[in-house]
């Protein structure tokens, strides 16, 4: 990601973010980068409220919340930006109000709409700041949605515009997480290279979920986003799988499907080895 230079931190900001700035991987420049970053969160439910809260607290300067749902009573055990007074109101409005209270440095843009094809096509036309942020590589998208058609649509839009996508999902005691980045890790492929179906019913509404499991997966999603923004560590090419019963994370290396209809326009990578050469017998891995 391009490190963007912004204004100097105020004394108040320096004190507020001091524990982050203390990390050599962040430092003062990193905090400025966070403050100049644009992150869109699609789905302001269990995952979305958690990541929004964490990213706002960390000083991500520009958040975009997208969700057409209103708060329901059954949301409260895991959607932590809402309270009984929020019921019946748009999730994005309630969440934005809480985030601004949490950190006035953050500009929160809200869209009480479903992420549809029409919506995605109008986004850059209707928001020049967002378009500029994308051109400057200061824009990433977090998929916190609750259904497979939206996941596939988000993947398609991000793949088309080379927008880094941090996709996370959770239901029952299971979670999944992956970073998709066509510009920097095309060899790992896109979401469609791993899951191509539109017809998955494994969501929180049908399977149930615990807020604590949601919180864990959301924290990993927010951490992945912050590492990406700050260029910390190597770029992640795994599918991470969370098992809340076994209390474990497992990961498998992703590989691009060269016949994938979604990311076939991505550049070739130096690491386009076939699965034959990467997958070794007896559980050994080369990487």
């Amino acid at each position: 990601m391009t490190i963007a230079a912004t204004d100097i931190l105020t004394k108040q900001q320096f004190i507020q973010y001091y524990r982050q700035i203390l990390l050599p991987e962040v430092a003062e420049q990193g905090q400025k980068t966070l403050l100049s970053q644009h992150i869109m969160i699609v789905g302001v439910g269990g995952l979305g409220t958690h990541v929004a809260q964490q990213l706002a607290a960390a000083g991500i300067g520009n958040l975009y919340l997208v969700d057409d749902d209103k708060v329901e009573n059954s949301n409260l055990p895991r959607q932590i930006l809402f309270n009984p007074e929020s019921i019946g109101q748009y999730k994005v409005s309630c969440a934005a109000a809480e985030l601004i209270k949490l950190n006035p440095d953050v500009k929160v843009n809200t869209y009480a709409e479903r992420f549809s094809k029409d919506f995605s096509e109008s986004l850059f036309a209707g928001n020049s700041a967002l378009k500029q942020a994308n051109e400057d590589e200061r824009f990433i998208l977090l998929d916190c949605s609750d259904n497979m058609p939206t996941r596939q649509l988000l993947n398609h839009w991000c793949a088309r515009h080379f927008i880094p996508l941090v996709s996370a999902s959770v239901s029952a005691f299971s979670g999944q997480l992956m970073l998709i980045d066509g510009k920097n890790t095309p060899e790992a492929g896109c979401y469609h290279c791993v899951f191509s179906s539109l017809d998955i019913q494994q969501n929180c509404q049908s399977m149930g979920v615990l807020g604590t499991a949601v919180s864990l997966v959301a924290s990993m999603q927010a951490l992945t986003a912050m590492k990406l923004v700050l260029n910390i560590g190597s770029l992640d090419k795994y599918l991470h799988i969370f098992d809340g019963v076994a209390m474990s994370w497992h990961k498998v290396m992703r590989h691009r499907d060269l016949k994938c209809p979604v990311c076939r326009h991505w550049p070739e990578s130096n690491n386009t080895e076939s699965v034959h050469s990467l997958a070794l017998p007896s559980g050994e891995t080369k990487l």
């Binding site: 791993v194 191509s196 691009r256 994938c260």
Partner: peptide
């Protein structure tokens, strides 16, 4: 049609 498959910790795309 609804699953992903990993062989020795590497996801194998469906086309392969």
């Amino acid at each position: 049609s609804n699953i992903a498959v990993a062989l020795n910790q590497h996801v194998v795309p469906k086309s392969q």
